[in-house]
Amino acid sequence: MKICIVTRNIMKGDGQSRVNYEIAWEAIRCGHDVTMLASSVDLELQQSPQAHWIEIQVQKWPTQILGGLAFSWQCARWLARHRAGLDVVMVNGANTNERSDINAVHFVHTSWLRSHVHPWQLRRDLYGAYQWLFSALNAYWEKKAFQKTNIVVAVSEKVKQELLNIGVPSDRIRVILNGVDLHEFSPGTSDRLKLGLPEGVTLALFVGDILTSRKNLDSVLRALVNTPDLHLAVAGTTEGSPFPKLVSDLNLSQRVHFLGFRRDVSELMKGADFFVFPSRYEACTLVLLEAIASGLPVITANSAGGAEIITPDCGIVLPDSEDIQALAEALTKLASDRNQRDRMGHAARAIAERHSWTSIAQKYVEIFEELTKVQVQV
């Protein structure tokens, strides 16, 4: 089978890039040929004889909008010339306007545009206006792209609902959650002192972008005021972040530990007692999967895509990300009972083991093979 994957990056990184990386390798392991229309591709993947990289250069374009348009146009032009030689074409969202067989949806811009934490709702300036234009254009392009495909894969139940809300028929939607590296993220212990973490205290961990309020660190900090025996470690770039000042204003400086941007998140998770991430808007966050794979109980919110896999056995899912009192109660519940945390951590790992990258990639390859069989029958 000859498969074509269209996406900006196919790397062992985060999010969409990692999903496509795993799909490409699984397809190759199954004996298929993979053509990749992308701007960057993992070096080892490039070296596989079954992988073929068509480089799509967009670096010269000065904005995301123009870069996206250039990528879409170049991919569409290549596909128009070579489509007959391909069995399956998988695109990601609106990254090309050419007809596809599968569209993997990692984000729905129509829903993001309506979110109360969209930059345009928070900043009525040039930056906010640009973000509004970027989201509005992508929302329009996505709707057109979803009409030009056979199967739409949503990366969470939340994304599925967002697709239904914009008119994608339910019988064309499949849900395949993102995966997790079960070797990199696994239960264990680490030396808190070497990681810059406080010793001898109960420690919650928050990981994410803290430059804006989207991930909801502000609510976590306000809830922490009512959880006096708990410390919080925060991994994320602090330059330009409003939260160090908020910590000072709330008199939490002795209990909140900013770690800056970190690449050793798996080690940080081994040093924490539980994970807190009540994000106000996520399509399907990898960090929740990484936390449960590390054997951590989690506190999250319904507004975080992927939260549907968090059961009461392994964590707490808040119905409302803005309910600071409920968040404080959840923090207190986990902070006060080590035995409960241990039980929840074991249950968390068991759930994560059903979401390995290999198992997730296999589901996509099964859809490829299903589509090929249908084409043969026709």
Rank of each mutant, 00 (worst) to 15 (best):
F274T: 09
R262C: 00
P312F: 13
L286H: 11
I309F: 15
D323K: 09
R263S: 15
F274W: 13
S266Q: 15
M269S: 01
G271C: 12
F258P: 06
F261M: 10
G306H: 02
L327N: 01
A326W: 06
I299M: 02
G260R: 01
T300P: 02
A304C: 15
L334D: 04
D264S: 05
H257Q: 04
L259T: 06
L296H: 04
E322Y: 12
V317P: 06
T285V: 04
A326P: 03
A326Q: 10
L318A: 00
F261I: 00
V265E: 01
F277C: 13
L296K: 05
A272D: 09
N339C: 09
T332P: 02
I292K: 10
A307G: 05
N302A: 03
K270P: 02
E329T: 12
F261W: 13
T285Q: 00
I324R: 08
A326Y: 07
A335H: 11
I299W: 13
R262H: 08
N302P: 09
L288W: 00
L318M: 10
L259S: 09
P278C: 04
V317Q: 01
E322R: 13
A272G: 05
A330F: 01
E322H: 04
R280C: 07
G271F: 05
V265R: 12
E267C: 03
G271Q: 09
A291R: 03
G315D: 05
C284P: 12
L327Q: 00
G305L: 12
D320F: 03
A293M: 08
G295I: 10
N339S: 14
E282M: 11
L296E: 07
T332D: 12
D320V: 08
V317M: 12
N339Y: 02
S279V: 01
M269K: 04
K333D: 12
E322F: 03
P297T: 04
P297Q: 05
A328G: 03
E282A: 07
Q325S: 14
D337E: 08
V276I: 13
N302E: 09
C314E: 09
P312H: 02
L331S: 04
F277G: 12
I324N: 12
Y281M: 15
I299H: 00
A307H: 15
L334C: 08
E329N: 12
S303Q: 15
S321F: 08
I310L: 10
S336C: 13
I316G: 01
A272Q: 06
T332C: 14
L327D: 06
L286Q: 13
R263Y: 14
F274L: 11
L318D: 05
G260H: 07
D323I: 12
D313P: 05
T332V: 06
E329W: 03
G260K: 06
S279D: 04
R338Y: 10
L331C: 00
V276H: 13
I310S: 10
G271P: 06
I324A: 01
P312N: 06
L288R: 02
N302H: 14
H257W: 10
A326E: 13
S303G: 02
